[in-house]
Amino acid sequence: MSATHPSPEAARRVAFAPNWPMRLALLAIVAYAIWASSRLGLSWDRLGHGLGEGGRLLARMVPPNFERWGLLLEGMLESLQIAVLASAIGIAISLPLGVLAARNLSPWWISGPVRAVIAVCRSLHYVIVAILFVKAIGFGALAGTAALVVASVGFIAKLFAEAIEEISMKQVEAIRATGAGVMKVLAYAVLPQVASRFIGFCLYQLDSNLRNSTLVGIVGAGGIGGTLFAAFKRFDYDFVAAILLSIIALIFLAEIISGRVRAALR
């Protein structure tokens, strides 16, 4: 026995249980990184070359060129319009969809399909949706708005449904017991419980719609993104820098404002 098996005394003297899964995983990650880099044609050579190119690009970007500020302003305003409209329509659609998707309020044969619709809205990237809309209904702000409406529905309706599923059903029962109808139950027992969270989701989505609306123009769906893409194609890198700075400033501003509003709501 003791000749073949280590005595309990000796077994106890192992200081560390070797963590083989972790070591193997780390090794695998490193090996993967090297292999995949070579497959994608990433090499030190290319990196060095890229660094030089990057330096030249940066040099061409400064100083930012705000000469065509009219074009810039027009694009920014259109992005803002897209964001506002997409948020408004998205919220309007999400309200009923969220209620319908909540499994504690709707029967399964309604909530199931509605949840599926929301899931599809969520899983497609908004830029892909924007391309499809551009191809279907033409270039311009309409396609961008429609794409962001889809994205908003996917986000708000899902979180709204989850919020409704977490409410206390006791209050719903109490209002039902007074003989209130469906809409009255919604207004007096459901909405008061979820209103503040719902407003939080909407603010967040307005914020991200604003970010995304500066982008959908790249695929021709309106807003500053189109101007940006065109400037890139024409190698107007100083104008590109101006546009990027304006976008960052706008997003900064929006973040500050929505932070203030959220603090005020609390």
Binding site: R12, R13, V14, A15, F16, A17
Partner: peptide
Amino acid sequence: AFMLLDAVGLPEHAT
């Protein structure tokens, strides 16, 4: 370390 763990009465808790 093992000796100290023995001394503080936790010989079985090393891992």
